[in-house]
């Protein structure tokens, strides 16, 4: 990983932590794989090929003790505000890092940005984010603790969204990451964790995951022999 990018990421996280904002964020996206690779050392999980995006899932309701202007907080690092897509989802850009903010989409898809006035930002509502927010784990990242989704939740969510991707490249990347993480979990003796997450989701999501794994020839990664709820 490029040192400059890594150092900038550290500084951003440190500032968010100092402002007590980081506690309400879950780091999602490909940066998680970097942290999982540390958790699964020696299990063959390599940090993924990724873009500069550093994506934060904002827990809702977004209750904050005090107002923090995130753009102002990071401005002196050289970040500039930009807006993405027709709806105008806010992003903070730097040549080494792009910060994006996401929230779980609820109800009918309107696509409208979700305003978070306490932080002076808006966030993009996305499907399947709830799954990432369930059973998150906290991992150390230098001098701060970062909340990330449990690897099992992360991998199964990747399988769910792969089919919805418009770009084939992204779908291939999602599937690749999902399989690599599921294998690492299995090799660490945590297959039970995969099953537990699988059983906690809706039947239609379970079907999608089974279909995805079958297409990849990796049905064996979903070990459902123990406990109730075996697929028919």
């Amino acid at each position: 990983m490029e040192k400059k990018q890594y150092d900038l990421c550290r500084e951003v996280l440190r500032r968010l932590s100092n402002e007590a904002v980081l506690d309400r964020f879950i780091l999602v996206g490909s940066w998680c794989v970097v942290l999982y690779a540390d958790c699964f050392k020696g299990r063959g999980l390599l940090p993924a090929i990724r873009t500069r995006d550093l994506e934060f899932l904002v827990r809702i309701p977004p209750s904050y003790r005090r107002k923090t202007d995130l753009c102002e907080l990071l401005r002196d690092l050289g970040f500039v505000i930009d807006y993405k897509g027709e709806e105008g989802y806010m992003i903070l850009e730097h040549p080494d890092l792009i910060l994006e903010f996401l929230v779980p989409a609820r109800g009918r898809e309107s696509g409208k940005p979700f305003r978070i006035d306490a932080l002076g930002i808006n966030a993009q509502p996305l499907r399947f984010m709830d799954l990432l927010a369930r059973n998150p784990i906290r991992v150390p990242f230098h001098d701060v603790e970062v909340t990330i989704p449990h690897p099992a939740n992360f991998a199964l969510q990747k399988l769910l969204i792969a089919r919805r991707r418009k770009q084939q490249g992204k779908a291939v990347k999602d599937r690749g990451q999902a399989v690599a993480i599921l294998r690492a979990l299995r090799d660490s003796g945590e297959s039970g964790r995969i099953s537990a997450v699988y059983r906690s989701i809706t039947a239609s999501w379970q079907r999608t995951i089974r279909r995805e794994l079958a297409a990849l020839g990796e049905e064996g990664l979903l070990d459902l022999r123990n406990g109730p709820g075996n697929p028919t």
């Binding site: 090929i49 873009t51 500069r52 500039v80 792009i98 084939q168 490249g169 291939v172 990347k173 690749g176």
Partner: peptide
Amino acid sequence: MVVIKNVLREELENSLRMRKRYE
């Protein structure tokens, strides 16, 4: 290969957008 190309293309789009914003 498709993954790498996709990432490179996305990053190029990001950089082009960023150039405009910084200007």
